[in-house]
């Protein structure tokens, strides 16, 4: 055992000093700038193609509208007001559910990581819930709580709770045993172990969970609205679909994509700030 351990350590430690730091870093930023340029170029290409390919192939606007037809929806006052009002509802549901789900997921994750008895008791239920498509609960929530915000927020909470719970718990449980030994040998109190070792160790995993949770929050809100609601982008999507207003449907998809990118980038920014050592 100690032989294999030593060899992996060896690999890690000998590779780091041989890496020429200065040039590597310069190459890194150059690579990133290059990557940004490629990404920008690719986005522009796709947008241009979106505008002209449907026209060239004479595809019906009802099937696949060109970009300009979608953008026109944002300049139309009445549609814009509709989009704005309903987007507010969906974003509200998603963010409130996200906040509650993160709080609950992280708290329960801490509890389950600390007390193995509770972990063993609760684990079968976690597995059962994990393998179930949680959006299937939406109709039940509508029966229980009606057509307001509550059932949608609950669906979001369900979808956010589990990735946060599992990633928090696993992050804490996979703390480097050598570091745990170090804290033990230093006679650290349980509170000190949590604050100075377990929490920081779990942060990368928690952020990985958060990235999933952010995406899931909008899946939850939209699905909840599909099942039964009087407001929200999910409702608006169905109304536009029933009116065969495909450009407006695309407009909603654009909004959802933009909000998604915005949230995802904020999470990444936070990760880089709080998990600066990775």
């Amino acid at each position: 055992m100690s032989v294999t351990e030593a060899s992996t350590v060896n690999k890690r430690t000998t590779s780091s000093p041989t890496k020429p730091r200065g040039p590597a870093r310069r190459k890194g930023t150059a690579g990133r700038a290059n990557g940004n340029a490629i990404a920008t170029l690719s986005v522009i290409t796709v947008l241009v193609a979106w505008e002209f390919v449907p026209r060239l192939l004479k595809i019906d606007t009802f099937i696949f509208p060109p970009l300009s037809a979608v953008l026109n929806k944002f300049t139309d006052g009445a549609t814009l007001t509709l989009l704005y009002q309903h987007a507010q509802v969906t974003i509200y549901e998603a963010l409130v559910g996200l906040a509650i789900g993160i709080f609950l997921g992280v708290s329960v994750g801490f509890v389950l990581a600390e007390w193995s008895v509770t972990r063993k008791a609760v684990y079968p239920f976690i597995v059962a819930f994990q393998s179930m498509p949680k959006v299937a609960l939406a109709p039940l929530f509508i029966i229980w709580f009606g057509f307001g915000y509550t059932p949608k927020i609950l669906v979001v909470v369900m979808l956010v709770f589990f990735p946060m719970l599992v990633n928090t718990m696993n992050g804490i449980l996979s703390t480097d045993p050598a570091r745990l030994d170090l804290f033990k040998s230093l006679c650290a109190s349980r509170w000190q172990v949590w604050r100075r070792l377990l929490l920081p160790s779990a942060l990368p995993s928690m952020f990985a969970g958060l990235e999933v949770a952010v995406v899931n929050s909008f899946i939850g809100a939209i699905t909840g609205e599909f099942v039964g609601a009087d407001a929200g982008l999910g409702v608006l999507l169905q109304q536009f679909k029933n009116a065969y207003d495909t450009p407006a449907v695309f407009a909603i998809l654009v909004i959802l994509a933009l909000v998604g990118v915005l949230l995802n980038q904020s999470v990444r920014l936070c990760r880089r700030r709080f998990v600066f050592w990775q």
Binding site: E5, A6, D181, S185, L186, C187, R196, W277
Partner: peptide, 19 residues
């Protein structure tokens, strides 16, 4: 009977905290 403050342990790996 347990770890003591007067004893210092040094491990196979540096076990420095990266943060």
């Amino acid at each position: 009977i347990g770890p003591q403050r007067s004893i210092s342990f040094m491990f196979q790996q540096p076990t420095l905290l990266p943060w």
